[in-house]
Protein backbone atom coordinates (compact mmCIF):
# COMPACT_ATOMS: atom_id res chain seq x y z
CA UNK A 1 0.00 0.00 0.00
CA UNK A 2 2.80 2.40 0.90
CA UNK A 3 4.58 1.62 -2.33
CA UNK A 4 1.38 2.16 -4.27
CA UNK A 5 0.89 5.54 -2.62
CA UNK A 6 4.47 6.48 -3.44
CA UNK A 7 3.90 5.61 -7.08
CA UNK A 8 0.68 7.63 -7.08
CA UNK A 9 2.46 10.61 -5.53
CA UNK A 10 5.19 10.42 -8.17
CA UNK A 11 2.62 10.23 -10.93
CA UNK A 12 0.79 13.26 -9.55
CA UNK A 13 4.05 15.17 -9.40
CA UNK A 14 4.89 14.38 -13.03
CA UNK A 15 1.37 15.36 -14.06
CA UNK A 16 1.60 18.66 -12.23
CA UNK A 17 5.02 19.41 -13.67
CA UNK A 18 3.71 18.78 -17.17
CA UNK A 19 0.65 20.92 -16.53
CA UNK A 20 2.52 23.89 -15.07
CA UNK A 21 5.85 23.91 -16.91
CA UNK A 22 6.63 24.93 -20.46
CA UNK A 23 5.69 22.82 -23.42
CA UNK A 24 8.59 21.09 -25.13
CA UNK A 25 9.04 22.68 -28.56
CA UNK A 26 12.66 21.67 -29.12
CA UNK A 27 12.39 18.58 -31.27
CA UNK A 28 14.01 18.08 -34.69
CA UNK A 29 10.59 17.77 -36.33
CA UNK A 30 9.38 21.06 -34.84
CA UNK A 31 12.62 22.77 -35.90
CA UNK A 32 12.06 21.51 -39.44
CA UNK A 33 8.50 22.81 -39.56
CA UNK A 34 9.63 26.20 -38.23
CA UNK A 35 12.40 26.49 -40.83
CA UNK A 36 10.03 25.63 -43.65
CA UNK A 37 7.46 28.13 -42.46
CA UNK A 38 10.00 30.91 -41.90
CA UNK A 39 11.34 30.47 -45.44
CA UNK A 40 7.85 30.41 -46.90
CA UNK A 41 6.86 33.52 -44.94
CA UNK A 42 8.95 35.80 -47.15
CA UNK A 43 7.09 34.51 -50.20
CA UNK A 44 3.67 34.67 -48.57
CA UNK A 45 4.14 38.14 -47.05
CA UNK A 46 3.00 40.18 -50.10
CA UNK A 47 -0.14 38.05 -50.34
CA UNK A 48 -0.92 38.47 -46.65
CA UNK A 49 -0.48 42.21 -47.11
CA UNK A 50 -2.67 42.41 -50.21
CA UNK A 51 -5.37 40.31 -48.54
CA UNK A 52 -5.25 37.60 -51.20
CA UNK A 53 -4.22 35.20 -48.44
CA UNK A 54 -5.75 35.37 -44.97
CA UNK A 55 -5.43 33.64 -41.61
CA UNK A 56 -8.25 31.20 -40.91
CA UNK A 57 -9.94 30.73 -37.57
CA UNK A 58 -8.73 27.11 -37.45
CA UNK A 59 -5.01 27.95 -37.44
CA UNK A 60 -4.36 27.73 -41.17
CA UNK A 61 -4.13 30.06 -44.17
CA UNK A 62 -6.44 30.40 -47.17
CA UNK A 63 -6.23 31.89 -50.64
CA UNK A 64 -9.40 33.88 -49.99
CA UNK A 65 -9.17 36.16 -53.05
CA UNK A 66 -7.71 34.13 -55.93
CA UNK A 67 -8.65 36.99 -58.26
CA UNK A 68 -6.21 39.25 -56.42
CA UNK A 69 -3.31 37.09 -57.60
CA UNK A 70 -2.19 37.43 -61.23
CA UNK A 71 -3.00 34.26 -63.14
CA UNK A 72 0.69 33.57 -63.78
CA UNK A 73 1.38 33.43 -60.05
CA UNK A 74 -1.81 31.82 -58.86
CA UNK A 75 -0.57 28.26 -59.04
CA UNK A 76 2.57 29.17 -57.08
CA UNK A 77 0.54 30.92 -54.38
CA UNK A 78 -1.85 27.98 -54.16
CA UNK A 79 1.15 25.71 -53.61
CA UNK A 80 2.54 28.05 -50.94
CA UNK A 81 -0.80 28.00 -49.11
CA UNK A 82 -1.01 24.21 -49.30
CA UNK A 83 2.57 23.87 -48.06
CA UNK A 84 1.94 26.27 -45.20
CA UNK A 85 -1.18 24.41 -44.11
CA UNK A 86 0.65 21.09 -44.23
CA UNK A 87 3.51 22.45 -42.11
CA UNK A 88 1.12 24.02 -39.62
CA UNK A 89 -0.88 20.80 -39.26
CA UNK A 90 2.35 18.87 -38.77
CA UNK A 91 3.57 21.42 -36.23
CA UNK A 92 0.41 21.22 -34.11
CA UNK A 93 0.45 17.42 -34.23
CA UNK A 94 4.13 17.26 -33.34
CA UNK A 95 3.86 19.64 -30.38
CA UNK A 96 1.03 17.52 -28.94
CA UNK A 97 3.00 14.34 -29.56
CA UNK A 98 6.28 15.70 -28.16
CA UNK A 99 4.46 16.57 -24.94
CA UNK A 100 3.02 13.14 -24.48
CA UNK A 101 -0.57 14.08 -25.28
CA UNK A 102 -1.51 13.53 -28.95
CA UNK A 103 -5.07 14.36 -27.86
CA UNK A 104 -4.01 17.97 -27.26
CA UNK A 105 -3.67 18.60 -31.00
CA UNK A 106 -7.03 20.42 -31.38
CA UNK A 107 -6.22 22.57 -28.32
CA UNK A 108 -2.77 23.38 -29.69
CA UNK A 109 -4.32 24.27 -33.04
CA UNK A 110 -6.94 26.50 -31.38
CA UNK A 111 -4.27 28.24 -29.31
CA UNK A 112 -2.11 28.90 -32.39
CA UNK A 113 -5.14 30.06 -34.39
CA UNK A 114 -5.84 32.70 -31.76
CA UNK A 115 -2.23 33.81 -31.47
CA UNK A 116 -1.56 34.02 -35.24
CA UNK A 117 -4.67 36.22 -35.58
CA UNK A 118 -3.98 38.33 -32.48
CA UNK A 119 -0.44 39.01 -33.59
CA UNK A 120 -1.08 39.60 -37.29
CA UNK A 121 -0.12 43.15 -38.33
CA UNK A 122 -2.71 45.75 -39.30
CA UNK A 123 -3.91 45.36 -42.86
CA UNK A 124 -3.90 41.56 -42.90
CA UNK A 125 -7.13 39.65 -43.32
CA UNK A 126 -8.23 37.25 -40.61
CA UNK A 127 -11.28 35.12 -40.00
CA UNK A 128 -13.30 35.77 -36.86
CA UNK A 129 -14.96 33.13 -34.68
CA UNK A 130 -18.06 33.06 -36.88
CA UNK A 131 -16.07 32.68 -40.10
CA UNK A 132 -16.41 36.28 -41.30
CA UNK A 133 -13.29 37.79 -42.88
CA UNK A 134 -12.10 41.04 -41.33
CA UNK A 135 -9.14 43.28 -41.98
CA UNK A 136 -6.95 43.82 -38.93
CA UNK A 137 -6.76 47.42 -37.79
Amino acid sequence: MTRLLAILAAWMYVGLAAAQGDLDIDTPAIAQFKTGMAQRYAQLLPWYQSGAVGLTRDGGVLLREPGAVPLAQRQAVTALVAGENADRAGLYREIARANGNPGWEPDIRATFAQRWIDRAPAGWWVQNATGIWQQKR
Binding site: L23, T111, Q114, R115
Partner: peptide
Protein backbone atom coordinates in the same frame (compact mmCIF):
# COMPACT_ATOMS: atom_id res chain seq x y z
CA UNK B 1 -1.79 23.76 -20.19
CA UNK B 2 -3.31 26.75 -21.97
CA UNK B 3 -0.80 29.32 -20.70
CA UNK B 4 2.18 27.16 -21.65
CA UNK B 5 0.65 26.54 -25.08
CA UNK B 6 0.22 30.28 -25.66
CA UNK B 7 3.81 30.87 -24.69
CA UNK B 8 4.97 28.11 -27.04
CA UNK B 9 2.82 29.55 -29.83
CA UNK B 10 4.27 33.03 -29.35
CA UNK B 11 7.82 31.69 -29.36
CA UNK B 12 7.22 29.86 -32.63
Amino acid sequence: PAAAAEKAADTI
